[in-house]
Design a protein around this nucleic acid. Structure first.
Length: 260
DNA sequence: ATGGCAGCTGGAAGCTGA
């Protein structure tokens, strides 16, 4: 089965593209979307149900928001950190986390903070948010060993994941502190699985809207599937589909698909 | 160094994203 992740940058603006992509990829059992930018009440659930999908959303007005679009019902869907982890409730004011079971696999769909600029309050929030995520995952690991993390992590793990890493230390998404905290997530026992299949450069999932970045292939890889160690042998392939990024009025991200 | 592009809100221009 295929499990995909895609930061759609507004589900309402991108609804037709999402529907077309799902129809063109019937093998995709579950699509995890991020940056839906809409409350659950206003999520376009009905048009997706009409295509035969189940929808599980966790959103807010204007910003953030995550959702699962699934061919089959998910079980034990949990929204936010506090559904799992006893942490201060303000960590769930921004809707960035939803998790649920597909068969015996726990899928965790994440929209990690951007960070704005190094040294900013948002950057501090980003680093702290990853620490909370780490505690949340440790809590999940007490009950479950088959876990797939997917989504927009807003961090490029290595220089291979950036078209031009020059000066990356002074920019968000590739600073040492961001890489370090994301590596600490992987060190819990997860594998950046795309690299098992594509160790070569040029594997990008996001291109800036500005400066003709996509045309010039000035990309970054910031969207991932992180697979827990016991699941690694079950993964058959992982790849990036650049096609939606070529469409008129695209998201600035493009889907990543895992087949297991 | 800065802006560039896009979406959302509210009904203009500012915030946020990455």
């Amino acid at each position: 089965m295929q499990i995909a992740t895609w930061n759609v940058n507004s589900i309402r603006t991108r609804l037709d593209q999402v529907k077309d992509w799902l129809l063109a990829h019937p093998q995709v059992e579950l699509l995890a979307v991020q940056e839906t930018k809409v409350t659950d009440a206003d999520f376009p659930t009905q048009p997706l149900q009409a295509l035969g999908y189940h929808v599980y959303s966790w959103g807010q007005k204007s910003y953030n928001g995550v959702a699962f679009i699934s061919k089959r019902e998910l079980t034990a869907v949990k929204r936010g950190f506090t559904s799992i982890l006893p942490c201060p409730p303000h960590w769930d004011e921004q809707k960035r986390v939803i998790a649920g079971f597909l068969d015996d696999i726990l899928i965790v769909n994440l929209y990690c903070p951007n960070g704005s600029a190094i040294g900013s309050d948002k950057y501090t929030y980003k680093l702290q948010w990853f620490q909370v995520l780490r505690e949340y995952l440790q809590e999940l690991q007490k009950e479950q060993e088959r876990i797939i993390l997917c989504g927009d992590f807003n961090v490029a793990l290595t220089d291979l994941d950036i078209h031009d890493p020059t000066g990356r230390e002074s920019k968000i998404m590739a600073s040492d502190a961001e890489r370090s905290v994301l590596q600490s997530i992987l060190d819990l026992g997860f594998v950046d699985i795309l690299r098992q299949f594509h160790p070569e450069p040029g594997q990008y999932t996001w291109w800036d809207y500005r400066s003709g970045a996509f045309r010039r292939n000035w990309g970054w890889r910031i969207d991932y599937h992180f697979v827990s160690l016991p699941l690694v042998p079950r993964v058959q392939d992982v790849w990036i589909d650049p096609a939606p990024r070529r469409l008129p009025q695209p998201s600035d991200h493009t889907p990543v698909i895992l087949c297991c």
